[in-house]
Every structure is written in structure tokens, then in C-alpha cells.
Design a protein around this nucleic acid. Structure first.
Lengths: 183, 183
DNA sequence: GCAGAAACGGGGCGGCCCCCCGTTTATCGT
DNA sequence: ACGATAAACGGGGGGCCGCCCCGTTTCTGC
């Protein structure tokens, strides 16, 4: 994935770094030209290394997604599949909501490696939770991931501090809006 | 709101009509220039009548939002505030998910009349449901509206038929992901 | 050190949003 | 009926963007 020539590798890394700060500051639809400018390369170089915005998002967030997957794998060994799933979901939601642009990197798409990774990791938790009777049979990892990303994106470009709001909304979606809290 | 001069009224109406089909086909981020072109007017005319994209969205969806508000008012007279709220929420979700671009017209914003209308109508249902103990005290109409629009937007630009998917996801958010279905 | 491959980036193209301002058109009072 | 005036129109330009062509520069393996 990373280029072989030294100068190309350097540009690649500078682009990813510039993109990381740009996405953090302006969201996933930051200007690609500005990212190239900040990285000190021509825009053509950016497009050569990253044919699509999605590819750049993947490169930026690959590491963080890997960490989330690892957390899922650890929780998969838990004795209580139900709480394991909800714990992971809340952690995922909190992290995604607090990391601008990450949500856009988790929506399904043809060349979206991050999405595939998360699905693969989370599916294990969902299957175990389902087998334990802790979630409804028709609930899939895609459903849950869609909920998490949808909530994050909705809160993302809203006023100021949306992190706590995202957590509350995800809590509603997990336990339902009715009072019989199963917390 | 609608202009006084006859030619201006005609252009206004043609713009709204063209915008309706454009939003339906391409979503809320359809090209404004293309809408003006389809309406047979210059782009300046579009921007004079509708200073922002939001203003155009409002004009297009005002009628449908009004209908949803009326439905809420009718349900507010129901004897069972809990089911009244969930019934309205599902109807809202189904309608928003099946009407491309509508979701974008319901996100909070400074000049968003549609959002205010829906909030006002839905708040009555939420207050009554809360008083009846049918929803948790901390749940607000803003929370619910955010969930509905977030789910709709997430499903909206996904592959093909997302309507049923949106209904299922909203069902999850209302009743929770756990099996103790309160239908 | 050199040849060839690999990478670079200036600059052009088309599209978009937004707005200025000279021109056209509807309206209203007479 | 018609002319004056205000209202509305829209071509076209500016700025920004994503994308890509292709002549030039730079690295690397022998």
C-alpha cells in the first residue's frame, strides 16, 4: 500500500498527517486541495496516492479502527456476551462521535477497508450475544453499525459538544425509549 | 412569502416544482444550477427567491411537514399517549425515509421553519407520553427527531430500497435491541 | 554514474455556488 | 390606453473545488 520510493513514502506520510488534522478540524469533507497544500505537495500527488476521498479516510483512520477491532476481539472472550456487545457498542459510539470524520469512514462502500474490518470484528460479538439470547435474532452488525454512524454523523456537525449527546442517543437506541431500563 | 408580481410567482412555483423532482431524484444536495435550468430561469433568480438551500428545501417540503404535524395533533387527542407517540414516530420515520431530501429539511438550523413545526407538533406527544410514564423522563422531542433523521439520512444514500431498513432500525431504537419486545 | 523507471506538480477543464448590474417586464395611477 | 417607476430577470464573472494530462524532475539498481 505504501509506496516503495523514498520521496513517495515521505509525501504519502505527509499527506496522511495533513489529512488527519484537516479531517479533525473540518470533518470528512475537508478540501483535498487544502490538504495537499498543507502537506507541501501538488494536488495531483494526492490523487495519485489516494484515488478517492474514501481511500484517504481509510489511511487516516486505519490505525484507530484496528484498535477498536482489537477491543472487540478481547471482549469476544468475555463470559457475558450480552454486556460484552453493549460495552463495545458504547465504546465504539463514544470514540466515533469524538473523532471527527471517522463516522464517514465506517459507512459501507466498495473500497472501504475500515468498514469491513469493523464488521468482521463486531460480527463475532453479535453472533455470541444472539446465541445467548441477549439481542433479538433479527439484529445484525450492519444494523448496529448503521445506528452508531448515523447518530455520530447527526451529532457531528451540530453545535459544539455533541459527544455526550451521542452517548445518550446511543443509549436510547440500545435500551429503547421506554422507562423499563435494562441498563 | 410568495412574490406579488405575476411573473415572479410563476418563476417561484416552477423553481419549487423543479426542486421537488431534483431532490427526489438526487437527494438534498442536488445542483441548484441544474434546478434553475430545469425551471427555465437564471440561477440568479433562484438565489433571489431562495437565499439558501435550506430555504428551497423548506418551500418544497412545507406542505408535507404540515401534514405530519396535523397527524401529530390528531394523535395528541388519543387516550393512550404512549402508543400515540410511537405510532407517530413510526409514521414520521416511514415517511421521511421514503421521501428523499426530507430528512435534510428537518435538521435544526437557524432558518429552518420545517424543523420548528415538527418540534412543536411532536413535543405535545412527548410531553403527554412522559406524563403517562411511557417514555423515560430524559427523552426529548429533539432526541427522537435526531434519531429519525439520522437513520433516514444513513439509509437514504445507501443502495436501493432502504425504506424497510429504516423502519426496522427505528423499531430497534424505540424498543431497544434486547429481546424483551414491548411491541 | 547512468539509464530508465517512478514520481512529481503546474496548469487546464468542467462544475458549482454566489452575486453584480445592465436590461426587461409587470403594475398602477391617470 | 399609456407612460413612469419599481420590481424582477439573467448573463456572465469570480472564487473554489475535484480531477487529470503530460512535460519535467528525482530516485534507484546495476
Amino acid at each position: 500500500m505504501r509506496p516503495r520510493r523514498a520521496d513517495a513514502r515521505r509525501n504519502y506520510d505527509q499527506l496522511v498527517a495533513a489529512a488527519a488534522t484537516a479531517f479533525a478540524r473540518e470533518g470528512a469533507d475537508a478540501s483535498l486541495e487544502e490538504i495537499a497544500r498543507q502537506a507541501g505537495v501538488g494536488s495531483a500527488t494526492l490523487h495519485r496516492h489516494f484515488p478517492s476521498r474514501q481511500a484517504l479516510l481509510n489511511a487516516v483512520f486505519h490505525g484507530r479502527v484496528e484498535a477498536l477491532c482489537q477491543q472487540a476481539d478481547e471482549l469476544a472472550g468475555s463470559a457475558d456476551p450480552g454486556p460484552a456487545l453493549t460495552t463495545w457498542l458504547r465504546a465504539l459510539g463514544a470514540y466515533v462521535a469524538s473523532t471527527r470524520g471517522l463516522a464517514s469512514s465506517l459507512v459501507p462502500s466498495t473500497d472501504n477497508e475500515c468498514h469491513r474490518m469493523i464488521v468482521r470484528a463486531g460480527d463475532g460479538l453479535v453472533i455470541r450475544a444472539r446465541a445467548a439470547g441477549a439481542v433479538r435474532p433479527e439484529v445484525s452488525i450492519d444494523d448496529l453499525l448503521t445506528l452508531v454512524t448515523a447518530i455520530s454523523m447527526a451529532v457531528e456537525h451540530n453545535p459544539g459538544e455533541g459527544g455526550t449527546e451521542a452517548e445518550r442517543l446511543l443509549g436510547l437506541a440500545i435500551d429503547g425509549i421506554h422507562p423499563r431500563a435494562a441498563a
